[in-house]
Design a protein around this nucleic acid. Structure first.
Length: 279
DNA sequence: GCAAGCCTGACC
DNA sequence: GGTCAGGCTTGC
């Protein structure tokens, strides 16, 4: 599933390949992938140049050369299985939803589960659409992050996944960050000391940056902009490894359900309660 | 705080 | 043939 590193991988490639190019055509196989409608998107954007690609958490903003207050931004979320790529080898299949033509560069939007898609906004509405989301996990400072967690009673993993606190972590990297920080996913934030919180903040950012440098993680569906899979999968230490030995201590990785999602951790390295009462 | 809904493929 | 996963929104 695309999380921050996968979305950043796509964003970087879009910037490198498409900035300054003119959008000449949009072909639509699945109309709900382009809101409010393919017709309005064509009306607003055809003949316009792509002038900016920004990422906030798992959202991408594609900004076109159109003066406000007219619609000029496509807000993209890949959700579970969305893919944006250029690939001369790709033969359109039943999961192709949209096809963009940028100055002759064919850009495909493919999405098996149809959860993702593009929405057209003017600049202000695009900002409003994600106003409820917290700062990007790679931008947030420790003090700000800690303050945003403050007072909450939930399990730490639930809060890592709460995009309103900080945006970008999904199920994979939340589990990986907790393993690297040696924290149990069900630990109450209130029980965590300053050092533990700071360690978690640091490890979360570290694993995100490392995954970006590997082009993201591909479990099943994610592909980068040139159709290539991400190669961070081999670096995952707990996610999807239930029953396998912990890479640190050899004890079997456990999988539980937490807040409606799976959580993977090492019961030895990530004790439910702190071993010693430390601040 | 939790379930449903959006969807499909993978698995039983 | 039934169940489940999963990000995010919406509704109880």
């Amino acid at each position: 599933m695309p999380e921050l590193p996968e979305v950043e991988t796509v964003a970087a490639a879009l910037r490198a390949r498409l900035l300054g190019r003119r959008l000449d055509a949009i072909k639509v196989r699945y109309a709900r992938a382009l809101k409010p409608s393919p017709a309005s998107a064509r009306r607003a954007l055809l003949g316009r140049r792509l002038v900016g690609v920004d990422r906030h958490g798992k959202y991408l903003f594609l900004r076109f050369e159109v003066d406000d207050p007219a619609p000029n931004t496509l807000l993209l979320h890949l959700r579970m299985t969305g893919q944006v790529f250029v690939d001369p080898e790709y033969k359109p299949d039943k999961h192709l939803r949209l096809l963009f033509d940028f100055d002759g560069e064919k850009v495909f939007y493919r999405d098996i589960r149809k959860f993702g898609g593009f929405t057209l906004f003017d600049s202000e509405s695009a900002r409003n659409a994600v106003a409820h989301i917290g700062p990007d996990m790679l931008e947030v400072g420790f003090r700000q992050w800690r303050a945003r967690l403050g007072g909450r009673k939930s399990a730490i993993k639930t809060l890592l996944l709460d995009q309103g606190i900080a945006a970008g972590l999904g199920n994979i990297y939340a589990d990986e960050a907790l393993f690297r920080a040696e924290l149990h996913p069900e630990r109450a934030v209130a029980s965590m000391g300053e050092a533990e919180l700071r360690c978690l903040w640091r490890e979360a950012r570290k694993v995100l940056r490392r995954a970006i440098s590997h082009g993201g993680t591909t479990l099943q569906d994610f592909v980068g902009f040139t159709g290539q899979p991400g190669n961070f999968r081999g670096e995952l230490e707990v996610y999807g490894r239930a029953g396998e030995p912990c890479p640190r201590c050899g004890v079997g990785i456990v999988r539980i359900r937490l807040g409606g999602r799976s959580a993977h951790f090492c019961p030895q390295c990530q004790p439910r309660e702190p071993l010693s009462p430390s601040g």
